[in-house]
Nucleic acid binder design. Structure first.
Lengths: 238, 238
DNA sequence: TGTCAAAACGAACGTTCGTGCTATATTAGG
DNA sequence: CCTAATATAGCACGAACGTTCGTTTTGACA
C-alpha cells in the first residue's frame, strides 16, 4: 500500500508477478538511492545522477516512480526497512525490558559506527534536511522518527513494569535524553569523524540508566569498566 | 579578522568606508541569506531566489561575492556573528566558572526557542547538510562548532579551577553530553515542533551539572522546582 | 513462432542553476 | 563640472534539473 502502484499483493503469485523483473530493478534502484541520499541528502539525490550510477537511462528509471517526490518517499521507505533489519530486529533478540532498552541504544550506536548508511543515520540527516519544508516527505520522516521514539519509550515502561527501572523515572524525559545522546554521537562522528563520541554516548547512556535502575535491573546492564580515569594521557585527540 | 575581506575596522571611518553603499547592501543581502539558509539549507540558498527576495538582479547581487561558495562562506560568517551576539555575548555576562557554563547552556536553548534563525540552530543545520561534502564550507562550519565546544569545555575547566565542579568530572565527556542535549532539543523542536524539548533538555543539563557540582558550586545553579512529579496529568502532549 | 504487455531507452521539453560579459546608473574627489 | 571608481542591471551561456513522449527491446505464454 505504501509502496507505489504495481506491487504484487504479497502472497498472490499471479502470472504477472512471477516474472516481475521490474521489481528487482526497482529494488536495485532504491538500494543505490538510499546510499546516495544518506550522503548527499534526499534533495541532492538527483535522478540523472542515480541513473548514471546504475547505467540506466533517466527515463527508464523515472518510470518506476512517476515523480521525484515518489522516489524520495520510496527511498525513505527503503531506508526504514534497512533500519528495521539492522537495528530493531537485532535489538529485539534481547528480552523485553531493560535488556532490550539497552540493546536498542547499543545497537543504534553500532548502526551508525558501522556505517550501515554511508552518511550516518539516514533519518537524522533526512530530518535535518526536511524539517523546514512541509510536504509528504517531511511528514513521513517525522512519523518514522516518532515510531523510533515510541519504541524507546515502550521499552522503558516495560522495564518499569518488570521492576527493572524505578517508577520515579519519567519515560518521556528518559526517551528524550537517550535519543539526544544518539543524535549527538551521530553528529560528532559525521562532522568531526570523532569515533570517541560513541564511547562517550555509551557511557552517558549507561550512567543514566544505572541511575534509575533497580537492584533487579542493574545486572542487566554491562559492567562498569573503570580502567579509564587511571591513565589520563594528556593529548586529547585534537 | 574572521569577517570577510573589506569590512571597516570598526571605529576607523576611512574615506573609503564612509561611503560604502555597497557594504550596506552586502549586509542586507547576508541578513536575508542567513534567514533563507537556516530554513532551506545553504545549498537551497539560491542566488536567484535571494535576488528576487531583495528585488535585485542576480548579477548585481552576484558581483558582491564572485561565486556561490563565497556567498555561502560569507553567510556562515554572518550567522556566526549573530550567534556570538545572541548567545556568547549574553552568556559572558555571567561570572566565569559554573555560572557562565550554565548561562551558555541556558542562553543556547533560548536562542533556538526564540527563533533567532527561522530554521533553528543555523550551525546544526549547516553541519548536517555539509558533513558529507568536503570543501571550504564544511571546514568552516566544523571549525565554528569546535569553537563552541571549546567554549563549553573551557568553562567547565574554569568551574573546576574555581572549585565549583568536581575534579573527577571529565570535561570532554561533559561537553559532549551538554552539546548532545542541545542538539536533541533543537532536533525535536524543528522536526516535531515540540516545545517541551527545551524543558527536558534544561532539566537533563541541570541534573547532570548538579551531580558533579561541589557544595561551593551548587548554589550557582537554578533551584530545583519539584512541583512536577506531583500531578502527573495523564495526557502527554500527543 | 507470433503476440502483447512490461520495461528500458533516447531525445527533447521548459526551468533554473551558477557564472560570465557589457553597459548603465550612482557617487566622491579634484 | 568632469572624471574615475563603484554599484547595479541586462542579457546570454552551458549545464543540470524534473518531466514527457514516442519508440524499441525484452521475455512469458498462447
Amino acid at each position: 500500500m505504501t509502496t507505489a502502484g504495481e506491487t504484487t499483493e504479497a502472497g498472490r503469485p499471479s502470472a504477472r508477478a512471477r516474472r516481475a523483473h521490474g521489481e528487482r530493478t526497482r529494488q536495485a534502484i532504491l538500494e543505490a538511492a538510499v546510499d546516495i541520499a544518506s550522503e548527499e541528502g534526499l534533495e541532492g539525490l538527483t535522478i540523472g545522477r542515480l541513473a548514471s550510477e546504475l547505467s540506466m537511462s533517466k527515463s527508464g528509471l523515472f518510470a518506476h516512480f512517476g515523480s521525484k517526490e515518489e522516489l524520495q518517499l520510496a527511498t525513505v521507505e527503503a531506508a526504514r526497512a534497512v533500519f528495521v533489519r539492522e537495528v530493531v530486529g537485532p535489538a529485539f533478540e534481547a528480552e523485553k525490558g531493560l535488556a532490550r532498552l539497552w540493546s536498542l541504544c547499543d545497537v543504534w550506536l553500532a548502526y551508525v559506527r558501522g556505517e550501515v548508511f554511508r552518511g550516518g543515520c539516514f533519518f537524522a540527516a533526512a530530518a535535518a534536511e526536511f524539517d523546514g519544508r512541509p510536504g509528504a516527505v517531511r511528514d513521513r520522516v517525522a512519523e518514522i522518527m516518532k515510531e523510533w521514539l515510541a519504541l524507546l519509550r515502550r521499552s522503558i515502561t516495560e522495564a518499569q513494569a518488570a521492576g527493572q527501572l524505578g517508577r520515579e523515572a519519567d519515560p518521556a524525559q528518559l526517551t528524550f535524553e537517550l535519543n539526544a545522546l544518539e543524535m549527538g554521537a551521530n553528529w560528532a562522528f559525521q562532522l568531526h569523524g570523532d569515533r570517541q563520541a560513541f564511547a562517550r554516548a555509551r557511557e552517558a547512556m549507561l550512567e543514566r540508566l544505572r541511575r534509575v535502575a533497580t537492584p533487579t535491573g542493574l545486572p542487566l546492564l554491562p559492567a562498569n569498566k573503570r580502567a579509564k580515569a587511571r591513565a589520563p594521557r594528556g593529548g586529547s585527540k585534537r
